[in-house]
Amino acid sequence: MSNVTTASTKEAKWWNGGKSPFDVEYGKVMMWYFLMSDAFTFGAFLIAYGTVRFSTNGWPNPNEVFKSYPFAGEGTNAPLVFVSIMTFILIVSSVTMVLAVHAGKMMDKKGVVRNMILTIIGGIAFLSCQAWEWNHLHHEGAWWGMNPFINADGTASSTNFTNFFFTITGFHGFHVFSGVVINIIMLIMTLTNQFEKRGHYLMIEKAGLYWHFVDLVWVFVFTCFYLL
């Protein structure tokens, strides 16, 4: 095993059979394939959003729509503030996830547990932020099929803006939620020494791939809805 991997990294005949041509285990390849299909799903959503936006004359100004944050007064005008906090929460939780994966490679159970807990806290914090934002927008009269915000140029808007916003951030939020559930399962498996018994923490790496993908999608969602 070891001489195969060390001696053959440079000029190996990866496709001659007998070993994985990708040099990763089955589950990881499948996770990558799943994430690719998920990337196309999100891509389809975002491209649909872009197409509709290109085919419309006016569009609401995101700085007008997303300008509040929790515990702020009624007339707050703080565009981008709250969403930048959300973005940083997700980036930080991605970093703790990388650290958990790294600790797993070192067979450092304590490090895995600590970083998985931090990642889960980050995920829950992000979900709470999103719940607040949805609730806030809903109170302002925004929902699927309801758009209280007029276009940036002062003309009447359609409901496309809210429909796409709630669908896409909702789909992303659902991914974050599943990610948190997966991470909690990984934490429990770590605490019950399951990976210790297996002799490797490869499951943490697969959960990590999923979690980074969630962060990756947020990079696109954040840019498309809040910045552009």
Binding site: A48, G50, T51, V52, R53, S55
Partner: peptide, 9 residues
């Protein structure tokens, strides 16, 4: 898709 949207507008 984006150029299609643009042309539709």
């Amino acid at each position: 898709f984006l150029s299609d949207g643009n042309s539709f507008r």
